[in-house]
């Protein structure tokens, strides 16, 4: 280090969090364990949303019902991620490339963002049908839903 170089001090505080999935999120994750996709429904609006949550996006009122929706839907947008970055969950670089997209499950009014089985974006198109793929041994966590694959 020369006399002119600025001095930089490295600091890496380690913080752990325990995020509460909440009442609605806990039901969604337990649904995944059973191989089911659950949504919350507001009868006033009416509106059905995945993942289930307490406040309706239409009227901000309480979403009273949690219902099962078909594990298939339409791909409304997608991307293939090809740049390296540190995954805040694992602390190491996230494996690339991978594709994910926004899927509207049948009977729902919003989209859900998740991994796609397809590795090549050239084979993806907006409007294509996809279905949920669950893993064999499920534990009630997001990873129970492996990905969404082409359904046609």
């Amino acid at each position: 280090m020369s006399e002119q170089d600025p001095i930089v001090v490295r600091c890496t505080p380690e913080l752990t969090y325990r995020y509460a999935a909440g009442r609605y999120g806990s039901r969604f994750l337990r649904g995944l364990k059973e191989g089911r996709i659950l949504a919350s429904r507001c009868r006033r609006c009416p509106r059905t949303l995945v993942p289930p949550r307490i406040a309706c996006t239409g009227c901000f009122g309480r979403m009273e019902e949690v219902v099962e929706v078909p594990p298939r839907g339409e791909l409304l947008a997608y991307t293939q991620v090809t740049f390296p970055f540190l995954d805040p969950f694992t602390g190491v670089k996230r494996p690339i490339p991978y594709c994910y997209g926004m899927v509207r499950f049948e009977g729902t009014d919003n989209t859900f963002q998740y991994f796609l089985a397809e590795k090549n974006p050239a084979n993806l198109r907006v409007g294509q049908r996809v279905r949920a793929v669950f893993r064999e041994e499920r534990k009630g966590e997001m990873a129970d839903l492996v990905c969404l694959e082409a359904a046609e």
Binding site: Y19, A20, G22, R23, Y24, G25, A55
Partner: peptide
């Protein structure tokens, strides 16, 4: 500890309560 409630659920609790108390709608 309120492990059963997410941040959104905690906030919703007080928002729903204050709206009910005042009779003011969203």
């Amino acid at each position: 500890r309120r492990p059963e409630a997410s941040y959104a659920e905690l906030a919703f609790e007080v928002v729903a309560d204050v709206l009910a108390r005042t009779g003011v709608g969203h």
